[in-house]
Amino acid sequence: MRRKASLVLLAFAVFFAVLAPLLRWYAFPRLAKIPPDEYQTAVLEAKPAVLLDYGTMRPKKVPQVSIVQTLRGNVAAAKKAGKAAGRDVVVWDALSYIAGPDGKMVSKIPERYVFDAHSQDPVHQGGEHVDGDPVRREGIEFKWPFLTEKRDYTYFDAQTRTSAPIHYKGTRTFRGLEVYYFEQTIPWTKVPLPKTMPVEGITPETVRKAGTTRWYTTKRMFWVEPTTGAPVNGEEIHREELRGGTLLGDRDKVTVFSGHVKMREDYIAHTVKLVKSQRQLVLLLTTYLPWGFLALGTGLLALSLVLEARGRRPGSDTGTPDEAPAPPPAPAPAPPVAPASPV
């Protein structure tokens, strides 16, 4: 009976010992993915900020500018792009809507971001664009890959439509979470005018015809939770200018926007809470279950060996029916009893 039990335990020991690395290195990369139907919003604020008053064409200090960022997974487009690319693809339709202190639109930039659901590598299918301009992204945008590493990444900048390194600047603690801090500086660069301008009558064409160009610089900062790759906080020191042309009169340049943009407190709290729960799911597949299964497998193997050793001990009363102890040897014929010899 003991030997049968030891064989069953051995089977379970192998099962769990093999399951541990399979879960970590085979199942996790295939199971961990960004769902195609994600819907997320984030609100960032610059308090105060400088905004161009298009009526006077002069910059004006305002108490607040809000940036509302929405990401919506387009499931149908993801399926189509995934078929064409031959892998799991996510398509995010995004909108960055900038509202002035009165809530009126200052700028709105739609985007389509197409990427691999597992690795987050960009996928050049499905009509990726920024403000209607076709783009070819390199690197990441919005989110880092699962199990983010302490290294520089390539980050796509939607304003310049180019990718540049975003530098790992160290590990920090943010609201009780260990996070990696990343920083990217985009130097003054000439960028396209938004397709939708805040004032009726002013279009990108009229600005262009006046010989005026739009320039932009930013320093963007992200605090990224490395297990999920999700940013839990983001900030930007962002400046935009119009330069040259007849639109500005005798001035060389005029500030369109200037401000230190920070994530709104309620969105930070919401994101931190969400990331803390998602992090546990990733850790379950990468750490808790693999190490737990390995320990369980080792324990079961030890138990199996102990039972096996006990089963083989001489004098043990164990044994499976088909391995029953050999029948006792036939009794030796009794020696003939010699008649007592007379003393």
């Binding site: 509302v68 499931v75 909108l95 809507y97």
Partner: peptide, 16 residues
Amino acid sequence: APGGKTSPKPLLTTVP
């Protein structure tokens, strides 16, 4: 994992 459906919620043009 199941594929899911595109959210019916809009891309926001107001500050929530």
